[in-house]
């Protein structure tokens, strides 16, 4: 019988079987002599850096009053470095720009009410802000395999680690002295001052020692954000010099003592912000939401030397090493976030 070469070739191709495509988990930082301009726009200079795509599609809990936020989004990350700094750009789809973090609204009867719609755990998923978290392993057990999951501990029946707690879960490491660096971008509390809130996670599980358990801010010498609330909690403590601007944050430099000459329906910010001073302000960032996409550009020194830097900051001291990280996206939510399983790693190109 004459061989049908075409058929045989087809058979050979089909018999090659399924080709396993390995998921890329490595972000390679490109070396550059042209640092990007931090402006929340991914300009051409970023083309020299290969993107790493990460799908975040898991949620840690279902709020009792519903969850209108995103249940999944694809995050693209690029990184570059020079001899001094690491630069990153992060982009992801988010159909809504959420900035209305618990603003004050003047009521019909002349009183002020801070908008809120908290779930049964006491957390907000309606009047909040968008956030993005980048967690870096410093020396935490399990992070190299489980990523952020190594620090995630959910409560059962109101108990977490043997302690009564209303929160659905807490972040803490499982061994004393082990820490995770946490770069927490916040669209209202840190973005307006051009920063990422530089935080870290340690093994604290005593709420009396720290109300957020293991999640803490890096050491700061000044600045930061605080609630814009009078001592009795009934009205704003401050207002913009120019009156009701419509902004959902109040720069400390623009704040003056509150005087109630507003009309029904006027809105004042629920938060007063200023740049962190000291190690908590190590990370500069600019972000922009446009056409349903958040673009966040950041810059941090490869190594930091502030107070407690070894405990609180990942140090990119050896560019021949890899650095494990994980990410999470918060869509207008206080603690609920979309995350991924496993861990990703950053490598530095020579």
């Amino acid at each position: 019988m004459k061989m049908n070469k075409g058929a045989i070739a087809g058979i050979a191709i089909l018999c090659a079987g399924p080709i396993a495509v390995a998921e890329t988990t490595t972000l390679v930082s490109a070396k550059t002599d042209t640092p990007p301009t931090l402006d929340g726009v991914m300009e051409g200079v970023w083309e020299q850096a290969q993107p790493l795509e990460i799908m975040v599609d898991k949620l840690p809990y279902e709020p009792s009053n519903g969850y209108p936020g995103m249940k999944a989004t694809q995050v693209g990350i690029r990184a570059m470095h020079d001899s001094e700094n690491l630069y990153m750009v992060i982009q992801y789809d988010d159909p809504t720009e959420s900035l209305m973090r618990s603003p004050w609204v003047k009521q019909t009867d002349g009183s002020w009410k801070q908008t809120a719609d908290k779930d049964s755990t006491g957390h907000e998923n309606t009047y909040y802000e968008d956030k993005f978290a980048l967690l870096w392993d410093i020396d935490a057990r399990g992070f190299g395999k489980k990523g952020c999951g190594a620090a995630c501990h959910l409560a059962e029946d109101g108990m977490n680690n043997g302690i009564a707690d209303t929160a659905p879960g807490r972040k803490y490491t499982t061994r004393d002295g082990q820490t995770i660096d946490m770069w927490h971008w916040k669209s209202v509390r840190s973005a307006p001052v051009g920063q990422i809130d530089d935080q870290y996670i340690d093994s604290t599980t005593d709420p009396a020692a720290n109300k957020n358990w293991g999640r803490k801010g890096d050491t700061k010498t000044g600045g930061g954000y605080k609630n814009n609330k009078s001592e009795d909690g009934s009205q704003p403590a401050s207002m913009p010099k120019s009156g009701a601007t419509g902004d959902h944050w109040l720069l400390a430099s623009e704040a003056v003592p509150f005087e109630d000459n507003f009309k029904e329906g006027d809105v004042l910010p629920g938060i007063i912000v200023s740049p962190f001073e000291g190690p908590r302000g190590d990370i500069a960032a600019q972000a922009m939401w446009k056409d349903g996409i958040w673009t966040i550009e950041l810059q941090r020194k490869l190594t930091t030397d502030g107070e407690n830097a070894a405990e609180q900051d990942v140090q990119f001291a050896d560019l021949g090493e890899t650095y494990d990280f994980g990410i999470a996206v918060f869509d207008n939510s206080q603690i609920n976030h979309v995350y991924h399983d496993g861990v990703y790693e950053l490598k530095f190109a020579e």
Partner: peptide, 17 residues
């Protein structure tokens, strides 16, 4: 179990998994 399993494997867990 607490370190590796009970976040998902608990009666009250509402995690995606």
């Amino acid at each position: 179990m607490e370190e590796d399993c009970t976040n998902c494997h608990s009666r009250s867990s509402t995690m995606t998994d």
